[in-house]
Design a protein around this nucleic acid. Structure first.
Length: 353
DNA sequence: TCAACACTCAAGATCGTGAG
DNA sequence: CTCACGATCTTGAGTGTTGA
């Protein structure tokens, strides 16, 4: 198996959303273990024996030397593999924290190396909590070909690939999917929330998001752009614009999340000018108004913002759009006999904002 | 004005990988 | 197995911007 490794890695969405991470090698071995399970088989997967030879045979994309050197630590990492969920606020400052081990009842062999254990082999079976998240899934799961992560260079790339893949499935005919993820939530999902180095957004962006961006573009079938969204001064959310990397396979005609002919750059600009506007509202705006109208409105809005403080920027911006759209429609009506009537019905939906 | 935050740039430490 | 090298992780300094 090399270029065309079509084995499927299948994971439940709640597994993807939970908080965990592995080393790069750990990710690849775990994914390969899942890829060797038939997710639709009525029989749950049997226990899995892991040792250097077994890891080699899993065809993980790791080179022989890495396996030789890291097998013990990979095995140990998987033995201790835990996932946890968002703590539930029970009130009065009490939180309920839930998590579980992925593997159980392991028996393992080790070599004692001057007090240090070098794990040689282990027999792993999935816990009852983990099993429903990797086997027998009929809905709420994501899947990808293991080939996609074999070449990834960072554990964060693998994690982010799975997170984004969940929102932009393999068979999605959408050219683009847009998802906004809470920054803290994303950090928790990647297990970097408590890492001092990533407390600063710039480091998180530079070292994780930008590297992952390059890594995914170079080595996988999706790529993404992202944009930090501010609440007051701080970046609180990240908007990801995810697209298929292999342009030949993309059909642009069906099921668009963004309206047709949407200008992603313009979409992003609106986000910059109106950071409190979520993407659903932005999509509404792009459905309601023509691209040129939005462009002109942005310009006018920017000019107005230079002069004065705008109290309700979103409403103000929409009002400009409406006026400009009316002007545009009127001039069209003068030039053409065929005119759709209910263009502004979309715009009316914006009034509630 | 001040504090908080983000930005750029830089550098040392650590890790992962491939060659021999 | 060792070694070298490049990549990644982490931290810090200095500066600019923004909201209170």
């Amino acid at each position: 198996m090399s270029e065309s490794d079509k084995r499927l890695v299948v994971k439940g969405n709640s597994f993807i959303d939970s908080y965990w991470n592995l080393s790069l090698a750990g990710h690849k071995v775990f994914a390969a273990m899942l890829a060797n399970i038939n997710p639709t088989s009525p029989e749950p997967p049997k226990s899995i024996m892991l040792n250097k030879k077994a890891i080699q045979e899993l065809d993980t994309g790791l080179n022989r030397v890495t396996i030789q050197k890291q097998a013990s630590s990979i095995i140990q990492e998987l033995m201790e593999f835990k996932v946890s969920f968002d703590p539930e606020d029970l009130g009065d400052g009490v939180f309920k924290h839930e998590g579980f081990n992925v593997f159980e009842s392991f028996s393992y062999k080790y070599r004692d190396k001057s007090g240090k254990r070098e794990i040689l082999s282990v027999e792993l079976s999935f816990t009852d909590k983990a099993l429903p998240l990797i086997h027998g899934l009929s809905e709420n799961f994501m899947k990808y070909h293991i080939e996609r992560i074999k070449k990834l260079e960072s554990p964060y790339s693998v994690r982010l690939y799975e997170i984004l893949r969940r929102y932009h499935p393999i068979k999605s005919r959408r050219p683009t999917s847009i998802v906004t993820i809470d920054l803290d939530e994303l950090k928790r999902q990647m297990k970097v929330f408590d890492k001092a180095g990533y407390k600063r957004y710039n480091n998180f962006r530079q070292e994780i998001l930008q590297r992952c961006q390059k890594d995914l573009e170079k080595n996988t079938d999706i790529s993404f752009n992202f944009e930090g969204q501010r609440i007051s001064r701080s970046i609180k959310k990240i908007m990801f614009i995810i697209k298929h990397n292999n342009v030949e396979t993309v059909e642009e005609t069906e099921g668009t999340v963004l309206p047709k002919h949407v200008d992603i750059e313009l979409f992003s600009k609106v986000g910059q000018v109106l950071p409190n506007l979520n993407e659903e509202k932005k999509v509404l705006i792009f459905n309601a108004f023509e691209k040129d109208v939005i462009k002109e409105a942005l310009f006018e809005f920017a000019l107005a913002a230079l002069d004065k403080k705008i109290d309700k920027p979103e409403q103000y911006f929409i009002a400009i759009c409406k006026n400009k759209q009316k002007d545009a429609d009127n001039s069209k009506q003068n030039n053409s006999d065929a005119k759709e009537q209910d263009d502004m019905s979309w715009a009316d939906a914006l009034d509630e904002f």
